[in-house]
Design a protein around this nucleic acid. Sequence first.
DNA 1: CACCTATTTAAGTATTGACTTTCGTTAGCC
DNA 2: GGCTAACGAAAGTCAATACTTAAATAGGTG
Lengths: 107, 107
Amino acid sequence: MASVERAFDALGDPTRRRVFTRLRNRVCTAGELAEGMGVTRSAVSQHLQILRLAGLVSVTADGTRRLYRVERRGVIAVRQWLDGFWDETLDAFRMAAERAAKKKGEK
Amino acid sequence: MASVERAFDALGDPTRRRVFTRLRNRVCTAGELAEGMGVTRSAVSQHLQILRLAGLVSVTADGTRRLYRVERRGVIAVRQWLDGFWDETLDAFRMAAERAAKKKGEK
DNA sequence: CACCTATTTAAGTATTGACTTTCGTTAGCC
DNA sequence: GGCTAACGAAAGTCAATACTTAAATAGGTG
């Protein structure tokens, strides 16, 4: 599966978005993220795993702690997908308009 | 719930992304979209409903048919959310770096 | 080594939500 | 009016998955 597909799947869950948004402010651990979130550390850990596989987050070991941070490449990839999507939408509209104009001219 | 939240929820489903991607090429109906997709018209209709509530798609009536098309505002909104997200990530990194530099200078 | 702390993994449960089938509605057509 | 076509809505089913609890792992420290 393409990475972008996984990224969209990952961002499709509200709790996961909260984790991701919290991570935006500072590099931190699963335990820190879990505080005040109303879910267990374990749940957050699982969400981080999915975000990591989606390329949205990266992790580095620091002793027994694991520091998570936002991964630029993932964010960029999603953005580019959207840009490409919109470009193709515009192209399709333009071509449809041209076809319509041509048809009108033929009449 | 914010519109962008709904948009991410909507794009979180693979089938819904397929519907959305198909709609990118041309304005069409739920029935047309369903052809060759392996799901019923009803399912596609439900997906379109969700995409519509998320502001990603708009619909106009044409007799008994309903024409769906990609809604620019929705795509833009998601894009802007991503841009803002990344800007804040950078800001946080920068501030963290400044704090670290200052601390070092104090020593 | 023993012990504690931070975290992931495994297993099980429960909720969410995607999908189908069936029914109701609305517009066009004879 | 009756008939058909194109949808959406309602209700039910079933699979995916978010979450919890409990056990396993690994690093740090006495």
